Amino acid sequence: MASLPRFVPILATPGSLPPPAVDEQWAYEVKQDGQRAVAYLPGDGSVRLLARSGADITPAYPELAALGRALGRVPAVLDGEIVALDGQGRSDFERLQSRMGLSGSPAKAARMAQRVPAQLVLFDLLFLRSGSLVRQPWTERRAALEELGLDGPHWSTPAVVVGHGEQALAMTREAGLEGVVAKRLSSVYEPGVRARTWIKIRHARTVDVIVGGWVPGRGRLGGLPGALLVGERHPGGLRYAGSVGTGWSDAERTRLAELLRVAAVDRCPFDEAPPVAGAHWVLPRLVGEVRYSTRTKAGRLRQPSWHRLRPDLAPDDIG
């Protein structure tokens, strides 16, 4: 890989769809939920995969080794996302987690590749043959990527749509996907930058939850809740749904601290006590609304964020 320059991946900025007046100036891709990877192919049939951190993750995904042979003697650097697909063909981060962290265990990585095969979703081309493409507009990089024809058993170049952002977002919602990434057609590739020319738009899901405990914050948040431990009612009791550590203003955090102190109890109200160090338990009577992205197979909320307290609801009203 000595002849290939290193690239730190560009990052997308969370946001909303571009205004309708400029919709045709943007392309839309399905947002994948996996592990970001830059693939270095020096043209000798080999491939090296580097994570966003710069760590070499090549040994963890032996099924992607054939990508180098598929491209042949053309040196290239590709940007993409490694995913594991569920039964409906959607990226499933929980499935992928069983593949991550295996770079030091090639034998186990090979076994897991049979059980949970990985797919490299390619969406940008940073270097081709003898020159960098990062200063070229997205449209030219995308055209060059498509000309490579990289669609194989464990890698693909999914389609994109120009304009029609609202329809693209609605389609991903109906399909149960995480959302879309909007990319300005004229945008250059900015290595290591969280760019405003790449915007990720996630579908916001909400759920009413019951607060069963909390964990104190640190530093200036000492004595205040750093995270709430929340659950969902079911016929047998209260099932732990996860830890929520973002979404409050200072005033809301202070108000929650007062309510939690009044409701303090010694016994965990969840069916099974979550393995959370330093937890304080409360009577399960406070109801809140939480935003989240998806759920794990165990029902835990992924990327939860506090939205609001629901004083209009009692615990028995939900579930």
Rank of each mutant, 00 (worst) to 15 (best):
D33G: 09
P304C: 09
L49F: 07
S16W: 10
M100I: 13
D317K: 05
G236M: 09
L17S: 08
Q32V: 03
S130L: 12
F123L: 12
D317R: 08
R115M: 14
V207A: 12
R255E: 15
A21Q: 15
E174D: 13
A84D: 06
S187Q: 04
G237K: 10
A314D: 15
G43A: 11
G165N: 09
G245E: 02
D124W: 11
T172F: 09
T139Y: 05
S293V: 10
R261V: 14
L125H: 03
V290E: 03
G15W: 13
R184A: 12
W198C: 07
A227V: 03
A279P: 04
R255P: 00
E190K: 15
L50H: 11
V83H: 01
G231D: 08
L49Y: 03
G34R: 02
I82V: 02
T246S: 08
A107W: 11
D250T: 01
H307E: 14
A113M: 10
R300D: 07
L260Q: 01
A175I: 02
E146V: 15
L96M: 09
K297S: 12
D56T: 08
V83R: 05
A51D: 00
R142W: 12
R233H: 03
P191H: 14
A170D: 14
K183F: 08
A113Y: 09
G89M: 07
L145D: 06
L145Y: 05
Q88C: 11
A21M: 09
A60W: 08
G34L: 02
L177V: 01
P117D: 03
E166C: 10
V161K: 02
R135G: 12
A66H: 06
E190H: 14
V290R: 04
P235Q: 05
G217Q: 00
L102V: 06
A159R: 13
G223E: 04
V244T: 05
A27W: 10
R99A: 01
W138H: 13
R6V: 11
L169E: 11
E81N: 05
G165I: 01
L122F: 12
A159I: 05
Q97S: 12
R135Y: 11
